[in-house]
């Protein structure tokens, strides 16, 4: 991920100064509401606290407690499990949808129309999209009614709602788009004649995908993976609602601490989480050098 290469080389300083003025407002807002707060979180993670207040200090207790607690590892295991499953599902879905839109749909207008059809839900409320699964998956929900009506089961399936299954369904529902859009962008840039050349050379349908399409859309796959993994790892709202409180994630546990005004442990937990997410993103970037490919 890098800014597009500058189109004109500027040798005098006036251009650079103009750029600074233009970018300054954005940087100031981000420093004030993102940079500084993140530094504060880092500082507070070393603070002491009591029932009612946070006490400036420099202690490692919050971290030590975090690593001593068996709960921490269970929470991370749970979050990573969700991230892995959701990543795999959204990757398969996203790749195929993007492939269909780019290589099978004819006509630009039709392609844009179908693309918008996929993107519009992204612009509506996540919470509403999440709770819209409740009448579907509930004990007396549409899915169970249909299964029983068709005689497939006699008892309603209990695992559908307020379970890990529901959490994953909601994640996939909410986040697949973050996979579709970057992969779509990568694939749209592939010269169609490459595919024809590969087929002329005797590659079958699946070889073409494996040998040509997949390597050429890896930037999109990497970007989509970064989005999906960070979104799942950072979520607390979906896991709370859709598991009915039965599952937890690192962040939902952190949210409980915040509710109990235990800011320093919450801050320590956030710092560890940020480190882990950063490592995951770095791992993805190691596999695919997004920067090089975006610049080129």
């Amino acid at each position: 991920m890098a800014p597009p290469p500058a189109q004109a080389v500027v040798e005098d300083n006036s251009g650079e100064r103009a750029s600074w003025f233009q970018v300054a407002p954005l940087v100031v807002v981000l420093l004030l509401f993102f940079g500084l707060p993140m530094l504060v979180v880092l500082a507070v993670s070393f603070f002491d606290f009591s029932r009612t207040e946070i006490i400036p200090a420099f202690i490692f207790d919050n971290y030590i407690d975090l690593f001593r607690s068996e709960v921490t590892f269970r929470l991370y295991a749970s979050s990573l499990k969700f991230a892995l499953i959701v990543w795999l599902v959204t990757l398969v879905l996203g790749f195929n949808i993007a492939y269909f839109l780019v290589f099978h749909v004819r006509g630009l207008l039709f392609q844009i129309g179908l693309f918008l059809l996929c993107t519009v839900p992204f612009l509506t409320s996540n919470i509403i999209r999440m709770i819209s699964w409740i009448p579907f998956l509930g004990r007396n929900g549409i899915f169970n009614q249909a299964l029983q009506g068709a005689g497939i089961t006699s008892q309603p399936l209990e695992f559908l709602l307020f379970s890990d299954f529901a959490v994953i369904v909601a994640y996939v529902h909410l986040f697949t788009l973050f996979m579709v859009v970057p992969i779509f962008n990568s694939m749209a840039r592939i010269d169609k004649s490459l595919l024809e050349a590969a087929r002329d050379a005797g590659a079958g349908r699946f070889r073409v995908v494996a040998e040509v399409v997949l390597p050429l859309s890896r930037t999109g796959i990497a970007l989509g993976s970064i989005f999906v993994v960070t979104l799942v790892m950072g979520d607390s709202f979906v896991v709370r609602t859709m598991s009915g409180g039965q599952s937890a994630s690192v962040v939902s546990a952190l949210q409980n601490e915040v509710a109990a005004l235990q800011y320093p442990p919450a801050a320590a937990s956030a710092v560890i989480m940020v480190i882990i997410v950063t490592l995951m993103v770095a791992a993805i970037l190691r596999v695919v050098d997004v920067r090089k490919e975006l610049a080129g």
Binding site: P37, M38, V41, T230, G234, S236, V251, Y263
Partner: peptide, 16 residues
């Protein structure tokens, strides 16, 4: 700022 878990940003701002 884009990929930071949202709740952390809120937490940081609240703390600040």
């Amino acid at each position: 700022s884009l990929i930071m878990p949202g709740l952390f940003v809120g937490l940081g701002i609240a703390l600040t």
